[in-house]
Amino acid sequence: MAELAEPARSAGETDYQRVERSPEFQDLRRRFRSFVFPLTALFLVWYFVYVLLANYAHDFMSIRLGGSAITVGLLFGLGQFVSTFVITMLYARWANQRFDAQADALRREIEGDDL
């Protein structure tokens, strides 16, 4: 872990703390959080917008589309399914293509160092 050892080792610091302070790990964590946290906020807000509309905007959600029996509320509900599937695919793709390689590289360095 030569390149990870750059930050000078202070007294009493464990190997994991040394890894935690390394720029590689800091970058990994920043990328994880900046992808996952906003996405979580997004789907929670969208879910509660939907629940609140169903609860308090009855007439709007009951509007029928062009003489059919399909209502605005039904479309919003199906929209929750679509958004869930889309977020799942986006996350899986991001994690598989971007995150895993970086995390694996760091893991190999740590385990190679026999922590």
Partner: peptide, 13 residues
């Protein structure tokens, strides 16, 4: 916490 954070994100150990 350092050990937990590093392990949780990298899968080490």
């Amino acid at each position: 916490f350092a050990e937990m954070e590093v392990r949780s994100l990298t899968g080490a150990g």
